[in-house]
Design a protein around this nucleic acid. Structure first.
Length: 865
DNA sequence: GCAAGGTC
């Protein structure tokens, strides 16, 4: 037996480094092997993988989509090949002379599979080295030492459950994806994909859209008024009645009744307090962050799911927060909240807040969520503190969110005082009797019960709900949840209040809202679709495949067609049941009740039955998909030949409108150069073309009808405002305000294209040429009329200079680690752009800019290159 | 060039 060192294998480098630190008492040294860190100390070595280092796929002879019938993939062999060559090579080298191997991958199913993959690679080069498995759910000294003192064996059955998932996902996904793509002749980048997770996720979105389209709004009316004590501030009160079941209802479903009630309310000058209910309510602090809760909280700060995760990963790799992919909402036993709070108190931003938490007497007991898992701890700060200049503004905002969430979980509950007042508005004798027929007409359509009456004995019921924050509790450290108060004054039963500002609002029931990204991720989690590490990526994938557009994601016609085709022929691939069945099968494999072969064979059998029907309908499915693909791109009829005008992409990658009759018909219209076009349902009355919206992040705007834009440009005369600074003296070129057919405007030379001098102009608003002149450039000042207030653009040349100066400021922000505030400070110190930054002397610059060290500057300079 | 799951 070999007497070489012992080899510890973890799932990622970060875990390898921390485990080496713990086991070696921080004496381990790191060495690079094939670009991988290998930590070494006292006869031990530790290497971190990068998740799966081998991947499953079909053998190469199945690679050609045209040569291989999709149905052949069902029974094709599935092979495992290294995908991370460097890591695999390093692992083999280290395993060859190891005296013992310890698998220390993550403590979850996928971790067991990654462990088994490592085990097989080890076995290839070392047949008889003993291999152990250790399990721990957080990388802390206690947990890790305990795990290494009690090694266990790899759980091959649990790993086999993961392998079954891999095989089933690959065969179903690849066979159906190829079938749909081939049937619609969508090859290359625009293939049509389906899969066990993306399918049901897309169906969630499509189903919601179907509900929205089928929605039939109903009218209802709501009555409000303002009550006040004499001399006191008014507060809002709402009319309500009681239904058969004694529940309060505010919506009146009949216009005539609403009119009568409005008159009755108008006749009332005052209201008598009938009931006062005062109680205190506790408002518990939030539970620790798992991935889903974090994405949701970051979403309310305006970050997309993808962006939030990428920022959290940056903070994790830099060492400021714990692992961001976790299901767990219960802190591990050995997390010491007091110590962590103490460490965070060194950051001035949190100083006051941490002090208030440590002030309290007794132990701090953090909140716990419902989900307790073994994978990783909830996301929390590590206690390693970044300085503000280490982080970009977005990173800082997310870091602060994570810190404050942690502080909040250690804080006290808040207490509210809720005050509910019911008053009866009593004018002249109320004309509404409890007529049974009249009441029946008022049944709430979403509610089986009808009203029991509309007016109480003493008049119309009005209620006001007030809330006051008695103890701010966790709100002091966690400002992301509303702590707004609604003031209703103290009143007593029998007291008379004045009534004013009566209003009746006509409203309509609203269709259900589209899922936002974080809501979608919550729905996926509820249905066990995807994992904490993949859900946000699945949503990104739906955008990439042109299945959804805009935010909140809205399905395209293609998406509807894919879901329809799947529902008809391969319902499992868009059904949550496929994942549910797989979970049951995996549990059975892990428990030893079934095995890999049995489960994958059953699944293949199911898939071939799906293909029996599908193959017959290949053409019908393909036609339907192609029709929908075209519908997503169609604006309306071509004015020259009557075929469809479509959104097309030029070779340079820009979008334009072209005729489906091309090359017979060469009619085109330009589109703006910024953003990706989204076709709206609204059409132009003059040209019968759909309006276009350009999606360009924050600069998203509605372009409208492209034909109208082109016509406007053709009709508009260029307005000359002065001499061209480039060619004016020599050739007499003049500057003019020009409108382009793509809808944008600019100040350009009249000798274009011989002279291409140009200055940008804003997209929106009318431009007025004023009498004021810029002395430096001899050009008139311009004024822009958009919205209510016109604004001064000034001299177009000066304006452009200021614009580029601002651009240079934001150019600085493209350097990793420089945020808006830092860019401001740098500009004050005379560093306008990236070039200035690169040529600056680090020591001089550090001396000029507060809170920035020379090393930070050198770091920026390195990153700028 | 297909899936979904790790990780960067």
């Amino acid at each position: 037996m070999s007497r070489g060192p012992e080899l510890i294998i973890t799932e990622k480098d970060n875990a390898a480094r921390r485990i080496a630190d713990i086991l070696s008492g921080e004496s381990a040294t790191a060495e690079r092997m094939n670009d991988v860190n290998v930590y070494e100390w006292g006869g031990k070595r530790c290497i971190g993988l990068s998740g799966h280092v081998v991947g499953v796929d079909f053998p190469a002879e199945y690679n050609d989509w045209r040569d291989v019938e999709p149905v052949e993939l069902i029974d094709a062999p599935v092979t495992k090949t290294p995908t991370q060559e460097g890591i695999v090579a390093a692992l083999r080298r280290l395993a060859r002379n190891a005296s013992r191997v310890v698998i220390a991958t993550d403590y979850d199913r996928e971790g067991e599979l990654i462990g088994k993959e490592a085990y097989e690679l080890v076995r290839e080069v070392n047949e008889d080295v003993p291999v152990d498995r250790v399990r721990f759910s957080s990388i802390t000294e206690n947990e890790v030492k305990k795990a290494f003192a009690n090694p266990d064996d790899l759980d091959f059955e649990l790993a086999a459950a993961g392998e079954a998932r891999q095989t089933i996902d690959l065969t179903w996904g690849a066979a159906l994806t190829r079938f749909l793509s081939l049937s619609a002749r969508q090859m290359g980048d625009d293939f049509i994909s389906v899969g066990r997770v993306q399918g049901p996720t897309l169906k969630l979105i499509v189903d919601r859209e179907r509900e929205i389209q089928a929605f039939d709004p109903e009218s209802y009316w709501e009555l409000t008024g303002e009550l006040a004590k004499s001399g006191g501030d008014p507060f809002e009160a709402r009319y309500f009645y009681l239904n058969d079941e004694g529940n309060e209802r505010e919506r009146v479903w009949d216009e005539a009744v609403a009119d009568t009630l409005t008159e009755a309310l108008a006749a009332a000058e005052a209201a008598t307090v009938d009931d006062v209910d005062r109680r205190t309510q506790t408002d518990d602090p939030p539970t620790p962050f798992n991935t889903t809760a974090f994405i949701r909280a970051a979403g309310s700060l305006g970050y997309s799911a993808q962006r939030a995760m990428s920022l959290a990963e940056d903070l994790y790799t830099a060492g400021y927060v714990t692992y961001p992919r976790t299901d767990n909402t219960v802190y591990p036993d050995d997390l010491e909240p007091e110590e962590l709070i103490e460490e965070l108190s060194a950051a001035s931003t949190f100083g006051a807040d941490t002090a208030s938490l440590l002030d309290g007497d007794g132990d701090i007991e953090p909140t716990e969520g419902d989900e307790e898992t073994t994978d990783h701890p909830p996301i929390h700060p590590t206690g390693e503190l970044p300085s503000a200049s280490d982080l970009s503004d977005d990173e800082w905002e997310v870091y602060e969110l994570i810190v404050r969430r942690f502080l909040a979980t250690c804080a006290d509950p808040a207490t509210w005082e809720r005050l509910r007042v019911v008053a009866l508005a009593n004018g002249e004798a109320t004309p509404i009797a409890a007529d049974a027929d009249g009441l029946a007409a008022l049944r709430d359509p979403e509610d089986a019960a009808g009203p029991a009456d509309l007016v109480a004995d003493g008049g119309l019921r009005l209620k006001a709900n007030g809330k006051r924050l008695l103890e701010a509790g966790y709100h002091d450290v966690y400002p992301y949840r509303s702590s707004d108060e609604r003031i209703v004054p103290d009143v007593e039963v029998g007291e008379t209040l004045s009534l004013s500002d009566r209003a009746t609002e006509a409203k309509e029931t609203q269709p259900p809202r589209r899922y936002g990204q974080s809501r979608l991720i919550e729905e996926m989690e509820k249905r066990q679709l995807g994992t904490k590490a993949t859900r946000h990526r699945t949503i990104e994938k739906l955008y990439d495949r042109n299945y959804v557009e805009s935010d909140p994601p809205r399905p395209t016609r293609l998406a509807e067609a894919v879901v329809e085709a799947a529902e008809e022929f391969a319902d499992r691939i868009v059904s949550e049941e496929m994942t549910a069945q797989l979970e049951r099968d995996m549990a059975a494999i892990a428990a030893g009740e079934k095995d890999y072969d049995e489960v994958t064979a059953d699944s293949r059998e199911l898939l071939s039955r799906v293909f029996d029907d599908l193959t017959e309908s290949r053409e019908a499915v393909g036609d339907h998909l192609q029709t929908s693909l075209k519908a997503d791109k169609t604006l309306g009829p071509c004015p020259e030949c009557g075929s469809d005008l479509l959104v097309r992409k030029s070779r340079q990658g820009s979008y334009f409108v072209g005729c489906d009759g091309y090359p017979d018909c060469e009619y085109t219209l330009p589109l703006p150069s910024t953003g990706k076009p989204l076709l709206l349902d609204e059409t132009c009355e003059d040209h019968d073309l759909r309006h276009v919206k350009m999606l360009a992040g924050r600069k998203t705007f509605v372009h409208g009808c492209p034909q109208c834009k082109a016509d406007e440009a053709d009709e508009q005369e260029d307005e000359v405002i002065g001499l061209c600074p480039d060619c004016g003296e020599e050739h007499g070129g003049e500057l003019a305000i020009k409108r382009l057919r793509s809808g944008s405007r600019l100040v350009g030379c009249t000798r274009y294209p011989d002279c291409d001098y140009s200055l940008p102009l804003p997209r929106r608003g009318e431009i007025e040429v004023t009498d004021e002149t810029c002395e430096e450039h001899d050009l008139p000042h311009l004024r822009v009329h958009s919205g209510d207030d016109p604004w001064e653009l000034g001299c177009p040349i000066c304006n452009y200079r200021e614009f580029t100066a601002r651009q240079e400021g934001s150019e600085l922000q493209t350097v990793e680690g420089i945020g808006e505030k830092t860019a401001e400070k740098l500009k004050d110190a005379g560093v306008g752009g990236v070039d200035d930054l690169k040529s600056a002397d680090p020591d001089d610059l550090a001396a000029d800019v507060d809170g920035v060290g020379a090393d930070t500057v050198r770091d920026w300079q390195a990153k700028a290159d």
